[in-house]
Design a protein around this nucleic acid. Structure first.
Lengths: 163, 163
DNA sequence: GTACATGCAAACTGTTTGCAGGGCA
DNA sequence: TGCCCTGCAAACAGTTTGCATGTAC
């Protein structure tokens, strides 16, 4: 997509560290070529890729990487709080850099597209509900499934949650 | 848990159809011994069992059932809208009879226990958010993850659940 | 009687892990 | 240089499925 986004120093030096790479260094991770690669793919992603997709994109940039490494790296990043593991159904984990800020998702049931949103009132409400039940809120998961009123596809609310 | 809940006719006839079994019949499912068994286990469950747990409970009542059948039946019930598939993390699907009404879940991150709750304000808010984004709300998923404060006020047993 | 449900075990999918070799600090 | 990372493939867990047999309607 955005090949121009590969920042290279004037004389062919290593590209500038990506957003996520900088975070990795900050948290003291040893930066190998593979980790740098994954960091860059994640930095450039505007969606929520799963491991397979990360592997595909990383391989395209440099094929000397294996899925096992993607799994290990992604888990490491999760432990360091650099990405969050998401589950939108479909059985594969998807990943979301935390530095994009806290947000939730609305899934378009017709197209499968995922829209991010934030809502302060919801945050407040979630905390209030947890407290009402005698808990302090650690985390939350909110997903809305919606349909654009405009288009009227023949199909009924499809149930494509199969695995 | 509630073994006394096995309803038997005066003279040892077949137990009355369970809540879920009635729903199955309503939707035209062929009722075999195994399906009746699973229907009963689900009717009596007050938590959100996974397949393994359903299998365990069903086997205890009648060992002539296999996991494969539990998987197939549970999928069938989902297609018929009789149960909902849930994912509370941990990699196994858990099941929730729909006739218990619409509700959300708070998961105790320390014990794994699941507490059900409803909240009218949230329903309102969810619809409003979807509309704001240009969608009409089809479905939603809300899960809160919480921790009981150290000096826990030993919250009253509300609607408890989980495993 | 027939179409469909079941049990068994093998197949599949996503993910993790042991081991030998390689690379970063 | 030493420790950790990586690739490979085998191991795993949850779930699905093909086939022969059994059973509800």
């Amino acid at each position: 997509m955005d090949t121009s986004a590969a920042p290279t120093s004037p004389n062919g030096q290593r590209p500038d560290p990506s957003r996520i790479e900088r975070l990795c260094i900050e948290r003291g991770l040893k930066m190998t070529g593979q980790r740098r690669l994954i960091a860059r793919v994640l930095s450039e992603a505007e969606d929520h890729p799963d491991v397979e997709e990360l592997y595909r994109r990383a391989s395209a940039l440099d094929s000397r990487i294996s899925v096992a490494t993607v799994y290990r790296t992604v888990r490491l990043l999760e432990e360091k709080g650099i990405v969050e593991r998401r589950d939108f159904g479909g059985g594969r984990a998807r990943f979301d850099p935390t530095d994009r800020g806290h947000h939730h998702h609305l899934i378009d049931v017709d197209t499968g597209k995922v829209i991010e949103f934030e809502d302060a009132e919801f945050e407040r409400l979630a905390r209030a509900i947890a407290e009402r039940l005698g808990f302090s809120l650690i985390g939350q998961r909110l997903e809305l499934f919606g349909r654009r009123p405009e288009d009227a596809p023949a199909a009924r609310p499809g149930r494509k949650s199969g695995r």
